[in-house]
Computed example of a mutant assay.
Amino acid sequence: MQEDSPGTLEKIEQAALEEFSEKGFLGASLRQIVKQAGVTTGAFYGYFSSKEALFAAIVEPHARALMGRFMKAQRSFAELPANEKPEHVAVESGSYLHWMVEYICHHRAPVKLLLCRAEGTGYENFIHDMVEVEVESTLQYIQVLRCLGRSVPELDRQLCHILASGMFNAIFEVVIHNLPYEQAMRYVNQLRDFYTAGWLKLMTP
């Protein structure tokens, strides 16, 4: 195979996917990726400037898709009139979670890199960034409830962060362990019911 053939890029990315999946970004060997792909180091640098650029090429489309849809759900809820928010509090999040499970089940390998093998890259705080967005949204929602005249017990940022972190990590655990789609969806629905009930309990005097 010629190193500038159309299949070269695909071979590099496939070799990288396997190497990153096994060893993580920090432990992965660029030399081993090049060897497995059957190309020279010079050919590799014709496509990518570094190991991190290669990692980003694999995970960025999925990071963008997951975060983009998540932020869209957050904006949709934020733009609702205040008096409509209590009855829609779980609608947008439920729609996102269903979409997310389906998306991850169709892109398991690169999403696992994003969620589990990104230490040492700009993606290592991906879940943390989602959690921070969720915390801010939760605190804003509490203020909305109070403006609507509802009595809500004090919930500080640190507690909200712990709860949101637990929720996201639990949901991602379900979808990154190669569970069949139907089982993953069932578990995520049950987790969503569990956390929704918990939040409602905490927000009730």
Rank of each mutant, 00 (worst) to 15 (best):
G7R: 11
T8S: 09
E10L: 12
I12M: 01
A15G: 04
A15M: 01
L17K: 10
S21F: 01
K23G: 05
G24I: 09
G24L: 06
A28E: 08
A37H: 03
A37D: 06
T41P: 14
T41D: 12
A43C: 13
F44W: 05
S49P: 00
S50A: 02
E52C: 02
A53G: 11
L54A: 08
L54D: 08
F55W: 01
F55N: 02
A56D: 14
P61T: 03
A63L: 07
A65C: 01
M67H: 12
G68T: 00
Q74Y: 10
P81T: 04
E84Y: 07
H88D: 07
A90P: 06
V91A: 14
S95V: 15
H98M: 13
M100W: 02
V101N: 04
A109H: 13
P110N: 09
K112N: 15
K112G: 05
L114G: 00
C116W: 15
A118M: 06
E119W: 09
N125F: 09
I127E: 08
D129P: 09
E136C: 07
Y141V: 01
Y141C: 00
I142V: 12
L148W: 05
L148M: 11
L148E: 08
R150A: 12
R150C: 10
S151A: 14
V152L: 02
P153K: 05
P153H: 06
D156L: 06
H161M: 09
I162C: 13
I162Q: 15
L163K: 07
A164Q: 14
A164G: 11
S165F: 06
F172V: 04
E173D: 14
N178I: 00
L179R: 15
L179V: 02
P180F: 05
P180C: 04
Y181G: 08
M185E: 15
M185V: 13
L191V: 07
W199M: 13
L200C: 09
L202R: 03
M203Y: 06
T204F: 10
